[in-house]
């Protein structure tokens, strides 16, 4: 049902890439950037998750980076976290509709709705995910950890052009993130810095190549990762429903 048969007769499914992260950190902008950079070489579509409006889809349509019909908002019944994790039905419907209508697609980008550090995508919905923080949220956020920060396939620290205005040391924030991620990639990004944009696009190209070669294993960042508080041993919090 989810598979597309290529002309050669081999089974190849579209790469489904999620973009999660706190409100306003630049998720929609990352989607727009990726479409702008990659849509000439790859067949792409976008699914957005808003709580209440179709704001994200409108923003992306007005950016003109993809034909409007390839950008679809899903309505998540005020359950944006459920829609990317505990019950991904409505997002799967949208993804499958896009694959049916415009397939074969190379990449479908899915933007999460909702608003916190613990919301990540289930592997039932995406093959890989980017977690997006920004410098304006403060230099400490990367150190605070959480499932997206520590385990997403790529952590983006966005809006580095703003760092001098918010007194954040980008190099240090990136180092903190690297520590929390035990070797997983971290990218300092600004839409105003062409070389960082090129790095982001290259990361997606190489992910797609690994995915196609069956060398990519989807990882579930899961609920709150085990962590420790000062003066206590390490423990895990239960996953609160949104």
């Amino acid at each position: 049902m989810h598979n597309i048969r290529s002309k050669a007769g081999t089974v190849r499914r579209t790469l489904r890439l999620g973009v999660a992260g706190p409100v306003g950190t630049g998720k929609s902008s990352i989607l727009a950037t990726l479409c702008r950079e990659l849509a000439d070489e790859l067949s792409m579509a976008v699914v957005t998750n808003d709580i209440y409006t179709d704001e994200d889809a409108r923003f992306l349509r007005s950016a003109g980076v993809l034909p409007a019909e390839r950008i679809r908002p899903v309505e998540t019944g005020a359950c944006p976290h459920t829609a990317i994790r505990d019950d991904v039905s409505v997002n799967l419907d949208a993804v499958e509709d896009m694959e049916d209508a415009y397939g074969p697609l190379d990449v479908i980008l899915i933007e999460s709705g909702g608003d916190n550090l613990t919301a990540t995508f289930s592997p039932a919905l995406v093959d890989a995910q980017i977690f997006c923080l920004d410098v304006a949220g403060g230099g400490d956020v990367a150190r605070k950890g959480g499932p997206g920060i520590s385990k997403a396939d790529l952590l983006v620290i966005n809006k580095t052009d703003l760092a001098p205005h918010v007194d954040v040391d980008v190099a240090r924030m990136v180092d903190d993130a690297r520590c929390a991620r035990e070797g997983l990639p971290v990218l300092a990004l600004s839409k105003k810095d062409a070389s960082s944009v090129a790095e982001l696009a290259d990361w997606v190209r190489s992910l797609l190549a690994r995915y196609r070669a069956d060398r990519h294993t989807p990882v579930d960042p899961g609920p709150m990762a085990p962590h420790s508080h000062v003066h206590e041993g390490s423990h895990t919090h239960g996953d609160a429903r949104p």
């Binding site: 309505e75 998540t76 019944g77 005020a78 359950c79 459920t82 829609a83 505990d86 019950d87 991904v88 039905s89 409505v90 419907d93």
Partner: peptide
């Protein structure tokens, strides 16, 4: 209500 079939979009 926890059945994961997307019914949360319906009031």
């Amino acid at each position: 209500g926890r059945l994961p079939v997307g019914a949360y979009v319906y009031s």
